[in-house]
Design a protein around this nucleic acid. Structure first.
Lengths: 339, 339
DNA sequence: AACTAAAACGTGCACGTGAACGAAGTGCAT
DNA sequence: ATGCACTTCGTTCACGTGCACGTTTTAGTT
């Protein structure tokens, strides 16, 4: 591996000049610049990360991580991913501060504003789908603070990358799984979440596509919205099953799982519903163990956290742009036995 | 974060002495040693990784990675995991050499012996379950070369850690999934693999346990061994379905998937078998797409590779022992739509 | 030609650690 | 007292980079 020193020698200049060229600092003649770049290219110069790390430490870089849903195992796992990767990357001498707001847009905005006081140089955020959030992300970007979104994307913002699952595909997966578990026959009810989580509709579209194309004998007979509220979900499911007693399968496209499953659990005449939900929350684990939920679809939150930190540090310290601006994580199916 | 220099100042000695104490080098008085350790503990000294990295570079550490099954997507993903993590960790200035032997014990032994010529200081191996391999791993350990096993464990060897899935549990997962997909009714045939892959029997035991306890109307009516050979698998499945025409579900506990699925694909009168296999190989993907395989069970090879490298480097460069000597990866279910 | 300002470049320090080298200090035999 | 071996400890260099500072060269003005 060639070092700056060696390049300097080959180019007949000092290491300082090489440094200026390779870091795009000004104050170097066009010709010498060209020559240095040529040689750097020739020897395939790769900066030594340990050197960078040692030199960067004093800069005291700080990045912010803004999530919601305290205690939610999805975010707990995401945090583990961040923390594990931080372990590898901490030699760059940066720190991070973590905030978890309440699950509401205005709380996230408040937390975001608080975070800006801390003069961070990068941000990882699981954003709500709200124009005010987009606005703030753009503002940050303009100030030179790089933003990576996780879990939910805001494609119209100036974020440098999104790390999370492909919602349409995860909807298709739910659809395919539903087909298999029901042997392709029966009636389905869907409990949807709220509207400030982007992927929401995509999931349902993916689900509907597979059901309609691949399983003609499977029918979606009712869709109820619950705004990610457990009380509403309880009531919604109750009404739904009363109106459509022929339903044998239920798909929760987002929240309201606890409320819905509680109702199913409390039903006097137990019917073996096929139930598909999202994410590995405590609630999901509990109801998987109680045989209320049949399967749940995970989106690898651990890797979301891990990759997000990695991408942000690459950009922030090494100046390396992510290869894709949408980095998709795997979709996993979990059942009781695979927990 | 305290540095050696600061500890030295507090202890009233030079940094060299602190270095000797903290790295367990000899030549330092008991009392001063005690004092230094006290202060190091007090300030919660954590060595600066960038410093270590920069200083360690010249040592030219090399580690070996020994796999088999060239082209096998399981190992391809594992290699990606290694490579990604290497990207993060390469600042320690180490290199690795990768060998993929043929899928046979004696080829692995030969490759292992070749590797030893290269004077490596650590080894990651996906071992065959054979006493000669165990013997060699122990020999390496005695020579101070740390060994991490992936994919298959050799618990009786002197490896410092195993990274892979819990085979018994993955068998249970297969069983639970089989129950769900068949609605708990029908007859099952099992195609098993060979005997030099440890987890083999554990998977089948886990499978049998769930089937017998949870799904009384589901019966395993035939088990055929195919030694991971596709020709044998083809024939074995043919015989099996001839002898037991009532079989509606097939469980491949290891190899022979291509042979078996090819037979199913070529059958003139297509029957909708429920088929469960292991790992995300090309073969599996192909037959998932052809609707021959219903679901396949993955064991997160990416993370196996990633974690294995991490553990080995922690031990080798930072002298840190893994917290557990069995590090289990997640079990994931994949269907056609979630590929 | 003399001076000035800007451009272009070199030098040196800092970061934290590993490790070789060398310098004291101690005890013992001569 | 001198020499010697041994213990104990301090000093120094090396690793590769970022960055501040200082120095030289160039171009422009009077």
């Amino acid at each position: 591996m060639a070092t700056m020193q060696e390049i300097a020698k080959l180019a007949g200049v000092s290491r300082g000049t090489v440094d200026r060229v390779l870091n795009n600092r000004e104050g170097v003649n066009e010709e010498t610049k060209k020559k240095v770049l040529e040689i750097a290219d020739l020897v395939d110069y790769q900066p030594n990360k340990a050197g960078i790390a040692l030199a960067t430490q004093k800069k005291n870089i700080k990045i912010g991580i803004l999530l919601y849903g305290e205690g939610n195992p999805f975010f707990e796992e995401l945090k583990t991913g961040v923390s594990d990767r931080y372990n590898d990357l901490s030699f760059y001498g940066f720190t991070y501060i973590l905030k978890q707001s309440k699950s509401h847009v205005r709380d996230q905005i408040a937390a975001l504003d608080e975070m800006l006081e801390e003069d961070i140089s990068g941000l990882i955020i699981s954003p709500f789908n709200d124009p005010r959030i987009v606005e703030r992300i753009n503002e940050l970007s303009d100030r030179g603070i790089f933003v990576v979104t996780v879990n939910t994307d805001l494609p119209d913002s100036k974020r440098i990358a999104y790390v999370g699952s492909d919602d349409y595909k995860s909807g298709q997966t739910a659809g395919g799984l539903m087909g298999l578990l029901t042997k392709g026959v029966g009636e389905i009810g869907i409990i949807t979440g709220g509207h400030n989580v982007t992927g929401h509709e995509s999931r349902i579209h993916g689900f509907e596509e597979i059901i309609s194309k691949k399983y003609p004998k499977l029918q979606i007979v009712s869709i109820e919205e619950c705004q990610d509220d457990d009380y509403k979900a309880y009531g919604a499911l109750q009404r739904m099953l009363l109106e459509h007693p022929t339903i044998t399968a239920i798909f929760f496209s987002a929240g309201g799982i606890y409320g819905g499953c509680k109702f199913l659990y409390q039903m006097t005449q137990k019917q073996p519903y096929t139930v598909i939900t999202y994410d590995m929350s405590d609630v999901n684990i509990d109801f998987l163990n109680k045989d209320i939920i049949t399967a749940t679809i995970g989106q690898d939150p651990y890797r979301q956290g891990s990759i997000a930190l990695s991408v942000l540090i690459d950009k922030l310290i090494l100046g390396k742009n992510p290869e894709e601006d949408r980095i998709l994580t795997e979709i996993n199916i979990k059942i009781k036995e695979s927990l």
